[in-house]
Write a protein that binds this DNA or RNA. Sequence first.
DNA 1: TCCAAAATAAGAATTATTCTCACCTTGCTC
DNA 2: GAGCAAGGTGAGAATAATTCTTATTTTGGA
Lengths: 151, 151
Amino acid sequence: MKRTVQESGGKRKAGLEELRRRLDERGGHMTRQRAAVYDYLSGVEHHPTAEEVFLNVKRRIPKISLATVYKNLEALVACEAISKLTYGDGSARYDIRTDHHYHTRCLGCGRMWDLEAARGKSALEQIKPQPGFAVSDFRLELLGHCEDCRG
Amino acid sequence: MKRTVQESGGKRKAGLEELRRRLDERGGHMTRQRAAVYDYLSGVEHHPTAEEVFLNVKRRIPKISLATVYKNLEALVACEAISKLTYGDGSARYDIRTDHHYHTRCLGCGRMWDLEAARGKSALEQIKPQPGFAVSDFRLELLGHCEDCRG
DNA sequence: TCCAAAATAAGAATTATTCTCACCTTGCTC
DNA sequence: GAGCAAGGTGAGAATAATTCTTATTTTGGA
């Protein structure tokens, strides 16, 4: 499992200590399973589905159940340690980053990547909604085909 | 059931004749059920779920089955007579418009509205993905609170 | 009218996700 | 470090949205 650290700009991923603090705030506990889920997400560069997280964490904790993975992902989202990506077809994906950014999604293989928010923010701010509507957030996805799927 | 016609700009909804032509092209047939599904979508201003379409079409064709509604929605999407909106949480929604446009979604009441593509297109085209990724489409949602939900 | 391809109804099956509940851990407090 | 209450876990059942299956019916052209 490759462990690459993301670089440059924005609030990125927090360490386990920070995670524990956040869990504490909401009366949550740190468990082996929870740490493993968080750790797996910290170590991958794409945005896996719950199933993928389950299969990978299972290698470390063979008896972990899928429901536990789901509940931990939910808990991590609740304490803002990770974020849930619900656009896209099929299943939700989870992202270690909680800073504001957008995604590219390959229509061939379904994989998703990060798109730097900086690249889109000013462009998006030019877009005005109907009168009376107060925009608080943007969701943006670029769809297309990745290098591997273009052949 | 209110039947309002959308106005101004872009390729909007096609009539039943146009629909028949499009179905023909792909070897599809026009059926009473298919026409009813299309007709229902043409007559509403929001973007209903398959369930909503089913319940409403059922009033005209009591014996229609939910699977038929799903298959018809799929067929209509395939011949580009309608489009499927899969962002958002929960179930997919269907939209009579197939021209390229975006949506605003109220976080208070969940309703969705159209956002003119013209307002976003040039802004979005400034956004560049990672090298090697060929963008074929954008999906954009503005999240916030509508006039009614701001009180 | 005849026919092959396509569509339908009904319900079973699948997929992603959440719930249930008996038992086990965590993180205090003493 | 033992005791305890709140929270977490695992296994499987339950649910929700969607798709598949199959026998029967419709459609649109020859």
